[in-house]
Design a binder for these strands. Structure first.
Length: 587
RNA sequence: CGGGCUGUGGCGCAGUUUGGUAGCGCGUCCGGCUGGGGGCCGGAAGGCCGCAGGUUCAAGUCCUGUCAGCCCGACCA
């Protein structure tokens, strides 16, 4: 039994000044966590109870799936990370340290290397596989900017598991088992979540998926369909290409003088103002223009290549999508000096005529999926102050291909059902990933197959942010008064409050608390004598135990009050029936 | 790494413009009252005003430097 009179707990009446997001504010105010350093937190008794409940749910679901728990150190030697290149690849995010002999060590940010080496040391036959092992471990990442309290710290707890299979089919199965286990885990945590494809379509379907707990303070943007169950990372959204349009009635392309129209807005304005350019049926909009943007892309060898992107003028290029699709190439904007290298490009008036590998600039020209054959555009005429009208894709120009980098806007069509998409935010609480043979290759994890041949093992890696899940639940489950824990993760089942100046309520509550404990109910008992009822009520709402029981002024009539923290609904029950009634509530 | 803001008892803040012996609320301690929504009265403890240097008779306040933290962005298995 937890007694408020002795519990190591101090609740705060005011919000801490450095906390912005609700989970951070409330976890600090309710005395669950305290900040120690940027992105580093201590867990106080109530917080640690919640943390452990969540950890145990994660562990339980892993074990149910048949995975085996191991435990690695956090302090790791440099060598394995050197072999996979991550000692340098991880950059400043890696916490590094040296021992007294100047030997390099690191605090593990994730443990692919260690798992791979462990299995390599023990197993050597296909008969040993498949294998899934996991750990629940403190991880360290020296994030450039920790924020949002527990949601994004530099020290955090992660469950990471790794699957080892002989072939792709085995990997697919291990991946699927994790996917199922994650759905069960997050459902049990009471989290509202979506599963989004984490990679661009080109990289292939299910190789990597993220589990995002939906919350407006999340750092990951994703889209989901308002009508069907489609959800995807912004990088991975596929824009459905419209059917090719009939352009038989579209007049021949004609260049027009359009002075001082270097921007889309100015071009659309002028086109509507001038009678000779205006459309008869409707005004021109930015979506009628074809905007061409050039990037310089640095390839892995360090060589820069120009790339032209064409997209409807009402859209911007989403740099994250562009970077994701060009990976490992790195794009940068096309700048003034670059124009001198491509004399046929006229800044502000770049058109398809100059673009494309077959044309004057020789620059590869990729267009948005909406630019299908038959669509007609206003676009640059490659001369200052001049635009081409009625330029038809497929008739007047042929791009080198399609590229999916336009920003996603709310209302865009769902690639699955065609209805509108919405943009939402979430925090990544799980990630499942078919690693393949990268680490097994680098570290030489091979086994003998049934033909006696050495084959490289294929791996998957699967993470759950355990400490982050505490904050994610808090983020999704609170009101203006405080936290509201789902029962299974709550620090207690019941928050029992005794009020009054006489001994009677305290004696009755004491007795009740003992009986409830004996019946297996976890009780947080507010036995403080000198504290006024208002303080106790407010504390109970801040702390967020799902059921609040008050032994107070109605005791003389033989009743106690039961309040549901989430709904606020109150019921009176007879003290004589209290134990059985409350046990029932807590089941 | 770029931009903005802030450093004053445990927490939240005022005081800095205009230099003159450091204040308020909460919390804590002692005594009393109160006892169904952070209640009241009286008393008390607790501060290198981020740090260093400078100006001045005098610096929380002005000047220079520096460190730290927070927020936005970049970044983020």
């Amino acid at each position: 039994m937890l007694r408020m009179s002795t519990l190591f707990l101090r609740t705060l009446r005011e919000d801490p000044a450095d906390a912005e997001v609700p989970s951070h504010r409330l976890l600090v105010r309710a005395g669950y966590v305290r900040r120690v350093a940027p992105g580093v937190f201590s867990w106080l008794p109530l917080g640690y109870l919640v943390y452990r409940n969540i950890e145990n749910i994660v562990r339980d679901e892993m074990n149910r799936a048949g995975f085996q728990e191991v435990h690695f150190p956090s302090l790791l030697p440099r060598e394995p990370y050197e072999l996979t290149g991550r000692w340098t690849e991880y950059g400043d995010t890696l916490f590094r340290l040296q021992d007294r002999r100047k030997g390099d060590y690191l605090l593990g940010p994730t443990h692919e290397e260690m798992f791979t080496l462990l299995v390599k040391g023990e197993y050597s036959s296909y008969k040993d596989l498949p294998l899934v092992i996991y750990q629940i471990q403190t991880k360290f990442r020296d994030e450039a900017r920790p924020r949002a309290g527990i949601l994004r710290g530099r020290e955090f707890v992660m469950k990471d598991s790794y699957s080892f299979d002989i072939d792709d089919a085995g990997l697919e199965y291990s991946y699927q088992r994790h996917r199922d286990a994650y759905v069960d885990t997050f459902t049990r945590l009471g989290l509202e979540f979506v599963i989004v494809s984490a990679m661009s379509g080109a990289m292939g379907g299910s190789a990597s998926e993220e589990f995002l707990a939906t919350t407006e303070v999340g750092e990951d943007t994703f889209v989901r369909c308002t009508a069907c169950d489609y959800a995807a990372n912004v990088e991975a959204v596929v824009t459905p290409a419209p059917a090719a349009a009939d352009y038989s009635s579209v007049p021949k392309a004609h260049a027009e003088q359009t002075p001082n129209t270097p921007t889309i807005a100015s071009l659309v304005g002028l086109s509507n103002e001038r009678a000779d350019l205006a459309r008869a049926d409707r005004p021109w909009t930015a979506a009628d223009t074809l905007k061409n943007i050039i990037f310089m892309v640095k390839g892995p060898g360090g060589v820069e290549t120009a790339l032209a992107v064409g997209l409807p003028g009402d859209r911007e290029v989403d740099l994250k999508r562009l970077e994701a699709i060009l990976e490992p190439g790195v794009p940068r904007p096309f700048e003034e000096p670059d124009f001198t290298k491509y004399p046929t490009l006229m800044k502000g008036y770049i058109g398809p005529a100059a673009l494309g590998e077959a044309n004057s600039s020789g620059i590869k020209y990729l267009v948005d999926p909406r630019v299908v054959t038959g669509t007609r555009w206003i676009t640059g005429a490659d001369a200052a102050g001049s635009h081409v009208y009625d330029l038809v894709a497929g008739r007047d120009f042929i791009p080198d291909g399609v590229i999916e980098v336009a920003e996603i806007l709310a209302g865009d069509s769902c690639p699955k059902c065609g209805q509108g998409l919405e943009i939402a935010r979430g925090v990544e609480i799980g990630h499942i990933f078919q690693l393949g043979r990268k680490y097994a290759q680098a570290l030489g994890l091979k086994v003998l197959d049934e033909n006696g041949e050495l084959v490289t093992v294929t791996m998957g890696s699967y993470g759950i942010g355990v400490s982050r899940a505490v904050a994610a639940v808090a983020e999704q489950s609170h009101d203006d008064k405080g936290l509201i824990w789902p029962r299974e993760v709550a620090p207690a089942d019941l928050h029992l409050i005794a009020t009054g100046k006489d001994d009677a309520p305290f004696e009755a509550a004491e007795l009740l608390a003992g009986q409830l404990e004996a019946a297996g109910v976890r009780v947080l008992y507010d036995d403080r004598r000198a504290v006024s009822p208002g303080v106790k009520f407010n504390d109970s709402e801040l702390i967020g135990v799902p059921t609040i029981v008050i032994v107070g002024k109605r005791l003389v009539e033989g009743f106690i009050e039961v309040k549901d923290r989430r709904t606020g609904e109150r019921t009176d029950i007879a003290i004589a029936d209290a134990v059985s009634a409350l046990v029932a509530v807590c089941e």
